[in-house]
């Protein structure tokens, strides 16, 4: 109970810090912090969606970066067509159109690949999800019109028209940051609601003991497939944001090492907590920033840290803070 109160307090503090720090920093003229924090929030959304699969459903998908890539290209391609002409159906700066594209493409891809992948277990599941994301990687590489290997610049950010007259100007960095932040809150809320719903409990139970769930007359396949699609859609959303953030999309976003990094964020933060991915992504981005400023060989301490966290730091940072013992999972 005490740890739960601590947990809630810590999470609220973290969310508040994320809201305030970039603006305070900008006020003192260090505007690049807004940039770093935007990236951090976007990656948190992606990592949270993966943790829905990993922590709740126990599905170690190693191809989650594919959805970020699909979401990003759902912005890149329409903007490209709108700017340079071409396919009139896809073309457009309209953010809602980008979102619609991203959501439908990601949902479809997750539905098809999930239906196949979920027939496998354990290491085969890891490998087949990775195989599907490699397919997307090579598919994007092969799209020569959209830059192939080199990727595609996104000249303008998406236009989100709220009412007929009001347009959300996300070219303005702090408006874009607030948009990402609100979406993160929304995603965390949805994931928390799902985790504690009937649906989430079935997933959780199937992770712990699939046989028993089946014996109770519930086939977890459909539940897992829905979770797989949902996680894909949320990751696609983060891809839409990422393309807008970077003004650039490339097949590099889908490389398997990117999926590995998302996993790392979750493990670093702690798999048992809703806010674990957020904490993990925060540490990941800040570490990356400071280490890469300090030395070009920043992957070395990064790799050592990853090794250390996996070998010795069970439960990640959340585990360290709340001193939760191994094996003691949240319901």
């Amino acid at each position: 109970m005490r740890s739960q109160i601590f947990h809630k307090f810590g999470a609220a503090l973290l969310l508040l810090t994320l809201l305030i720090v970039p603006f305070v920093m900008s006020y003192f003229g260090k505007t690049f912090w807004l940039d770093i924090f935007t990236r951090l929030i976007i990656l948190s959304i992606a990592a949270s969606s993966l943790s829905l699969l990993l922590s709740v459903a126990g599905l170690a998908s190693f191809g989650h970066a594919a959805y970020i890539g699909l979401g990003a290209y759902a912005v890149g391609i329409p903007v490209y067509f709108e700017t340079y002409g071409g396919n009139d159906f896809l073309a457009g700066y309209n953010g809602w159109w980008h979102l619609l594209l991203a959501v439908s493409v990601c949902a479809l891809f997750a539905l098809v690949t999930g239906a196949i992948s979920l027939r496998t277990r354990g290491v085969h599941f890891i490998m087949i999800t990775m195989a599907f994301s490699q397919m997307i990687f090579y598919l994007l590489v092969s799209l020569e019109e959209f830059g192939g290997d080199d990727g595609l610049s996104v000249d303008l950010r998406s236009e989100f028209a709220l009412l007929d007259t009001v347009v959300l100007d996300i070219e303005e960095p702090w408006i874009f940051y607030l948009l990402c932040y609100v979406l993160l809150l929304l995603v965390l809320f949805v994931i928390s609601r799902i985790t504690h719903s009937h649906f989430g409990r079935v997933l959780n139970a199937a992770r712990q003991n699939e046989q028993r769930v089946r014996a109770l007359g519930v086939n977890p396949y459909g539940y897992r497939l829905f979770a797989f699609v949902l996680a894909g859609v949320i990751a696609g959303l983060s891809g839409v944001l990422y393309a807008n953030y970077a003004y650039f999309v490339s097949p590099g976003m889908v490389e398997w090492t990117r999926s590995g990094e998302l996993m790392f964020m979750i493990i670093l933060g702690g798999v048992t907590s809703l806010f674990g991915p957020l904490i993990g992504a925060t540490c990941f981005v800040l570490l990356e920033y400071f280490l890469s400023r300090w030395t070009i060989f920043w992957h070395l301490p990064f790799g050592l840290l990853l090794l250390g966290v996996v070998l010795f730091g069970r439960g990640g940072i959340v585990g360290l803070l709340t001193r939760r013992r191994r094996g003691e999972l949240e319901p």
């Binding site: 890891i126 090492t257 996993m263 790799g303 990853l306 090794l307 070998l311």
Partner: peptide, 17 residues
């Protein structure tokens, strides 16, 4: 397997650097 994947991913980063 997940731990193994991540730890050896760390080893790759170390070896590359």
């Amino acid at each position: 397997h997940l731990d193994q994947l991540l730890a050896t991913f760390g080893l790759i980063l170390i070896a590359d650097t």
